[in-house]
């Protein structure tokens, strides 16, 4: 555990809590892609199957359970509790275009051809692209509420901090997880365009981020 890794996990947690609180307080999930949230719930489910097989640390177990619980709570709020506010019209990204290549890739590239390893690889690849329905929705509607952009900012920050963590671990422990690093870098690139808009529009004090 290093400072980048811890800060990365904290910003991931902050992102998820921001989104959950936004939906809960406004009693609405307008502008939120339910598809992205479903994909994130699938990411956590397939990655954290090792909760049942190996014990790493109390921190590891608690964070995994928290991430799973919060992601399922978010999906519940969007699709059950506040489903009348869910904007399915604009959440029209075709998820099969992500799932099919990701499933294919995880069968081609993995550390071992075992169910656990293939599912872990699937979750890593899927996480890299899971935000795309949300970014697509923002592009389609042309705007995002500032609280939604704060959520995306912390999610992107988490990815960037994980890269710093890998650089640190490579130099201090010689640790290098090829699958995680490559897809983590790809994932972070998706946020670059958004980061630019966030800094130029939202931070400069506008309540909504509109696309040019």
């Amino acid at each position: 555990m290093n400072v980048f890794r811890l800060a990365g996990d904290v910003s991931h947690l902050v992102a998820i809590i921001i989104l959950l609180l936004k939906i809960w307080r406004s009693r609405s999930c307008a502008g939120i892609s339910g598809k992205s949230q479903l994909l994130f719930a699938l990411v956590f489910t397939t990655r954290y199957l090792d909760l049942f097989t190996v014990y790493i640390s109390a921190y590891n177990t608690i964070m995994k359970v928290v991430f799973l619980a919060l992601s399922y709570a978010t999906v519940y709020l969007i699709y059950m509790r506040f489903r009348n506010t869910y904007d399915s019209e604009n959440d029209s990204f075709r998820v099969e275009f992500l799932l099919v290549p990701v499933i294919g890739l995880s069968f081609l590239e993995h550390y071992a051809f075992t169910p656990m390893e293939v599912l872990w690889t699937f979750s890593i690849f899927l996480e890299a692209v899971a935000i795309m329905p949300q970014l697509f929705m923002i592009t389609k509607t042309g705007e995002a509420e500032s609280i939604t952009t704060h959520y995306l900012f912390f999610l992107g920050l988490y990815r960037a901090l994980y890269i710093a963590n890998w650089v640190w671990r490579y130099h201090t422990e010689g640790f290098f997880d090829q699958i995680a690093v490559v897809s983590g870098v790809v994932q972070t690139i998706f946020y670059c365009d958004f980061f630019y808009l966030y800094v130029t529009k939202v931070v400069q004090g506008r309540s909504k981020m509109s696309l040019p």
Partner: peptide, 10 residues
């Protein structure tokens, strides 16, 4: 990480 090592990252 190499095969068999535990995945300690989230």
């Amino acid at each position: 990480c190499p095969i068999g090592t535990t995945k300690d990252e989230l």
